[in-house]
Design a protein around this nucleic acid. Sequence first.
DNA 1: CCTCCACCGGAACGTGAGGAGT
DNA 2: ACTCCTCACGTTCCGGTGGAGG
Length: 397
Amino acid sequence: MAQQTLHEIFKHYLESTPTHFKNRDALSLTYLPEIAPHREEQINQLARILAPSLKGSKVSNVFMYGKSGTGKTLVAQHVAAELERMSPTIKPLYINCKMKKVANTEYRLLAELSRVLGRRVPATGLPTDEIYNIFLDAVEKNKQNVVLILDEIDELVNKIGDSILYTLTRNLELKTTKLSIIGISNDISFTDRLDPRVKSSLSQEEILFPPYNAVQLQDILVERSKISFAPSALADGVIQKCAALAAQEHGDARKALDLLRIAGELAERENAPIVSIDHVDKAEEKIDLDRVVEIVRSQPRQSKFVLLSIIRLADRGDKNLQTGDVFSYYEQVCKNTRTKILTPRRVSDLIAELDSMGIISTKVISKGRYGRTREIQVPLSTSVRAKIRPILEEAES
DNA sequence: CCTCCACCGGAACGTGAGGAGT
DNA sequence: ACTCCTCACGTTCCGGTGGAGG
């Protein structure tokens, strides 16, 4: 029975109305397009800064900043790839510092880089300074000038401080090769928290990525949809709608592309003849839901309990939820499930984390005589809450 | 103007899991 | 077997604080 159904599903898929997609990958995050509309200036700027490396000179470090989905990563990778193609003596190393378990600590960052350079390094166990030596040795032996692209560099610094950057930018003892850093950050005020010396050497050059406006987003979408969608698969106004929605969100091109891709997938799934504006609306809902569900599901047990407490209290209609209320409810949840109760200090951090992940929203307020606390709100729609609840309650058993 | 609540949030430290090297 | 590493997660300790009420 089950096999029969599976078979049917696949068969149906193959025989169903022709797919709207020509090349689905062209809408995905990892796709590197040939052209980047409205980023010509940034590309040229970066290229001019990096060009001297073709003749073996050390180039300036670069700091690139702008909101998410403004093309920073794209530009960096695009230019780096071209540089690598032009000269065998240049080795761009791209690394995303936010990647948990890969590059979110000093050790892991260096280990990962060494690995890319062909070294076998254990995931743990060695002292950090030894990893440094391995990395430096790998760079030297490689005889290539390294252009190190550190994406989401702000995450790294927030977690472990700026001392690595200090070492990397000023203290490296490289004899034969050179290393330059391209730092990429979503957070514009990030450099203010840096040690002044690090700041000055990291941002010898700066490139700003302003948000895209709706018209520019449309250009991007048109460009990509030519590659990714079959001709006339999109209803009139679909692209405009995606662009408009993403423009509301600080001009995030990634969001625009996601909307378009998901809308296409939804249309395909329901065998609609074309992708309609209605699909875009549904896509927006789905993106939000998927994001939240994914985050909630991946939370550790204690964090789920905290969130469960918050949602139960909020659903119960308690207005002006504060940390103390959540904690006492959370205590009960723990007692019922015979789970260890974390300290208020820890729970406070968990609440702050949920906030920074965008699941809840909190604000530190003072109630004068009655103390200072976080006021907690749950900005999730009831349908999203309904989806989340079972996931959280599952943790109770 | 001062007090004092109910927390906030920084910092140092502890634990136990993963693993290296000798 | 033993000492040494990192690192996630948590605890302990504690100084700080905006503003309602006296």
